[in-house]
Amino acid sequence: MEIFRLNRTEEHDNYAARFGASDGIILVFPLYTDAMPGIVMAFIEKLSPWIGRMKGKRLGFIIHSGFPEPAHSRYIQRYLEWLCSKFQAEYAGTCVMGGSEGLRYMNEGSMDNKRLLFNRLGHDFISRGRFSPDTLKRIAGKEKLPVAMRFWFRLTGFSNAYWDMLLKKNHAYDTRFARPYSVE
């Protein structure tokens, strides 16, 4: 198993060449404001020589985001399924995990369940060539938060707590509604 870090953009050509030589690939990336990061898209564009030439190869994806609901990532999931068809690769599935922004604040013990699920995901990819639908469902959790919880988030401002903390830490809280480019 090899790990390639796409933030090393000078290596994208090398990674793209190795992409087609691999039997199984899992591409992991975060979701930023409902979209695939540009650095990931730049890498995917480097893969154009492999279009239609990956029969018998498996391709899986893991998308994580700060949004608590996996519903935000389903549009990208559909794009990734389409991408597999363009490559003529076997689609191994897309794992969608919301709420990952908060993971760095969790203690090790509370991460055990997620770690076990991701280990199972990797095991399924190696042994079966695809992600288990049950494991994907367990990692994703509820597709949408219950209405009462969404209302509570809005009412209490809890959903903004993390961002407000960052704004205060960077002395930008008082200007959070600034519109420097507006024409009025």
Rank of each mutant, 00 (worst) to 15 (best):
I3S: 12
F4V: 05
R5C: 12
T9W: 03
T9H: 07
E10W: 05
E11S: 11
E11H: 08
H12Y: 10
H12Q: 07
H12V: 10
N14I: 14
N14Y: 14
A17S: 10
A17Y: 11
G20M: 07
A21Q: 15
D23Y: 02
D23R: 05
I25S: 04
I26R: 01
L27S: 03
L27R: 01
L27W: 06
V28F: 07
P30Y: 04
L31E: 04
Y32Q: 08
T33D: 08
T33R: 09
D34A: 14
A35E: 04
M36C: 15
I39Q: 15
I39Y: 11
V40R: 00
A42F: 06
A42V: 02
F43D: 01
F43H: 02
I44A: 08
E45A: 08
E45V: 06
E45N: 13
E45D: 15
I51M: 10
G52W: 01
R53P: 02
R53S: 14
K55E: 14
G56W: 03
K57N: 02
R58V: 07
L59C: 12
F61S: 01
I62G: 03
H64C: 07
G66A: 06
P68Y: 01
E69R: 01
E69G: 03
E69D: 06
P70A: 02
P70W: 00
S73H: 02
Q77G: 01
Y79Q: 13
L80K: 05
L80F: 15
E81N: 13
E81F: 10
W82T: 15
L83R: 04
F87C: 02
E90I: 05
E90Y: 00
A92R: 03
G93K: 01
T94F: 06
T94W: 06
V96F: 03
M97A: 12
G99K: 02
S100C: 11
E101Y: 06
R104I: 14
R104V: 15
Y105T: 09
Y105C: 08
Y105K: 12
M106F: 10
N107V: 05
S110K: 13
D112G: 02
N113T: 05
K114N: 10
K114S: 09
L116H: 08
L117Q: 04
L117E: 04
N119H: 09
L121N: 00
L121E: 01
H123T: 15
D124T: 10
F125L: 12
F125N: 00
F125K: 02
S127A: 14
R128W: 03
R130E: 13
R130N: 08
F131C: 00
P133E: 07
P133K: 05
L136I: 09
K137M: 08
E143Q: 10
V147T: 10
V147W: 12
A148S: 12
W152I: 12
W152L: 07
R154G: 13
R154D: 07
L155D: 01
T156V: 05
S159V: 04
S159I: 11
S159Y: 09
A161H: 04
A161P: 00
D164G: 03
K169M: 08
K169E: 08
K169Q: 11
K169A: 13
N170R: 13
N170I: 03
H171K: 15
H171L: 14
Y173M: 13
Y173A: 05
D174S: 11
R179P: 08
P180Y: 09
P180A: 11
S182I: 13
S182C: 14
S182W: 11
S182M: 14
S182Q: 14
V183M: 11
